[in-house]
Deep mutational scan, measured.
Amino acid sequence: MSIQHFRVALIPFFAAFCLPVFAHPETLVKVKDAEDQLGARVGYIELDLNSGKILESFRPEERFPMMSTFKVLLCGAVLSRVDAGQEQLGRRIHYSQNDLVEYSPVTEKHLTDGMTVRELCSAAITMSDNTAANLLLTTIGGPKELTAFLHNMGDHVTRLDRWEPELNEAIPNDERDTTMPAAMATTLRKLLTGELLTLASRQQLIDWMEADKVAGPLLRSALPAGWFIADKSGAGERGSRGIIAALGPDGKPSRIVVIYTTGSQATMDERNRQIAEIGASLIKHW
C-alpha cells in the first residue's frame, strides 16, 4: 500500500482519535458579512469528516447552483462504474471539434489522439474542462443518470439537468442544476469515506481534487503551510461562485467545507476574496 493510499485508508482512524471539535460562531459572522459585502445569498456548511456531524452552517438547506462543483460527483459516478466493471479508466475516447464547448483548455489539445477516461476526469476536476465533463456525462448516460446515481446514494436534493455550459445559467428560483450545502457536503463525505467506492477509487477521487489547479484564489489562499486540501470550485452566471473541499491540518483532511453564493453584482475577484476570507476565519478558529 502506498503512503497516499495509507493516508486515505486511515482518515477515519486518525479522526477518531482527534480531540473533540467545537464550532466557532466567528466564522458564521464572516459568512454573514460576506453576504453584506456581496449583496447576495451565501450558503455555508462545515462537517466533521469522521462523524458527519454538522459543526457550523448557514442557509444549509437553500438551493444554490452547483456550477462546476458537480464534476466531482460526476467522476465519482464514473469511478463507481469502474468498480462495477462497467468502465475502464484506460479506455480512450475520441471526439471532434464539434464536441468542444466553451472553456476546454485540455480537451482542445487532444482532438487528434483523444483522451482516456482517467485523463478526462483529471481534466474535468483539476482544470474544470467543460468538454471533458460533457464527454464523461455521455459515458454514464447524461445528466439524468448522474441525478439517479445521487438518488441511489441517498441524495434526493442534488440534481443535474443540463450539460456544460448551460448548467451554469443560475436563474433565480430555478431548481435545475442545483444542490443544497448540506446535501453536497453529505454526498461528498460519502464519496470520500464511505463504502460506495473502493479504496482505490476513493484515493483516485481525492487525488484529482488535491491536484486542483484553478481554485488557488479561494480556500487555498488562506491555508497555512502543512495543511491538506482537496477541492473543486465552480463559477456561473449572475454572480455565482462555489467551492467544495476536504481539508485539515497535519497533512490530512478532517472536515468537509461547502460554500456557495449566487445573485451578486460583485466582480469575480471580490467573490473570490470573500470566500478566501471565510476560509481564513475557519482556519483561525479551527
Rank of each mutant, 00 (worst) to 15 (best):
M1I: 07
Q4H: 14
H5R: 08
A9D: 05
A9K: 12
L10M: 12
I11C: 13
P12Q: 10
F13W: 11
F13I: 10
F13D: 01
F13M: 15
F14D: 00
F14V: 11
A15Q: 08
F17S: 08
C18Y: 06
C18T: 12
P20V: 03
P20Q: 15
V21W: 05
F22K: 09
F22C: 13
H24I: 10
L28I: 03
V29Y: 04
K30I: 09
V31N: 02
K32D: 05
K32A: 14
A34L: 08
E35W: 01
D36Q: 13
Q37S: 14
Q37L: 13
Q37K: 15
Q37R: 14
L38E: 06
R41K: 15
V42W: 09
V42E: 00
G43E: 00
G43A: 08
G43D: 00
I45N: 03
L49G: 05
L49E: 04
N50S: 13
S51R: 07
K53V: 13
F58W: 14
R59V: 01
R59N: 09
P60L: 10
P60Q: 13
E62L: 07
R63S: 08
F64H: 01
F64K: 01
P65M: 02
M67D: 10
S68G: 00
F70T: 05
L74M: 09
C75H: 00
G76S: 12
A77P: 01
A77L: 11
V78W: 03
S80Y: 14
R81Y: 08
D83K: 04
G85M: 08
Q86M: 11
E87M: 12
E87P: 02
E87G: 05
E87Q: 08
G90T: 13
R92I: 14
I93S: 03
Y95I: 11
Y95T: 03
Q97I: 14
Q97S: 14
D99I: 09
L100D: 02
V101C: 10
E102T: 13
S104D: 02
P105G: 04
T107K: 01
T107D: 01
H110K: 13
L111T: 12
T112H: 14
T112D: 15
G114W: 04
G114V: 03
G114T: 04
M115K: 03
R118M: 10
E119K: 06
S122G: 13
A124H: 00
I125D: 00
T126S: 12
T126P: 02
M127F: 11
M127S: 08
M127W: 13
D129C: 01
D129N: 00
N130V: 01
N130A: 03
T131Y: 05
T131K: 02
T131V: 05
A132G: 05
N134G: 03
L135H: 04
L135F: 06
L135R: 04
L136E: 01
T138R: 15
T138V: 15
T139S: 15
I140G: 04
I140N: 04
G141D: 06
G142M: 02
P143E: 05
P143W: 02
A148D: 14
A148M: 15
L150M: 11
H151W: 15
N152I: 10
N152L: 10
G154F: 04
G154R: 07
G154C: 06
D155C: 01
H156Q: 14
H156I: 12
V157G: 10
T158S: 12
T158A: 05
T158Y: 01
T158E: 00
W163M: 13
E164V: 00
P165M: 07
E166S: 13
E166K: 13
L167F: 04
L167W: 01
L167T: 08
N168V: 06
E169R: 11
E169K: 13
E169N: 12
A170S: 12
A170T: 08
P172F: 09
P172I: 12
N173K: 13
D174P: 02
D174A: 05
D174G: 05
E175W: 13
T178I: 04
M180Y: 14
M180K: 14
M180R: 12
M180P: 03
P181R: 00
A183E: 12
A183Y: 09
T187V: 08
L188E: 01
L188Q: 03
K190G: 13
L191T: 06
L192M: 15
L192R: 01
T193P: 01
G194I: 05
A200T: 12
Q204M: 14
I206L: 13
D207V: 11
E210D: 09
K213M: 14
K213W: 06
V214L: 07
P217T: 11
L218A: 04
L219I: 14
R220Q: 04
A222N: 15
L223T: 13
A225M: 15
W227S: 02
W227L: 01
W227C: 02
F228S: 07
I229N: 02
I229T: 02
I229C: 10
D231T: 04
K232D: 00
A235K: 02
A235P: 00
G236A: 10
G236D: 04
E237H: 12
G239S: 04
S240G: 12
S240F: 03
R241W: 02
R241G: 05
G242Y: 00
I243K: 00
I243A: 04
I243C: 08
A246V: 13
P249T: 07
P253R: 08
P253V: 09
I256T: 03
V258R: 00
V258S: 04
T261K: 03
T262Q: 07
G263P: 04
G263R: 07
S264L: 04
S264F: 04
Q265S: 15
A266V: 13
D269T: 11
D269L: 11
R271V: 10
R271I: 10
R271C: 09
I275D: 00
A276L: 08
I278V: 09
A280Q: 15
A280H: 14
S281D: 08
I283G: 04
H285L: 09
W286Y: 07
W286K: 02
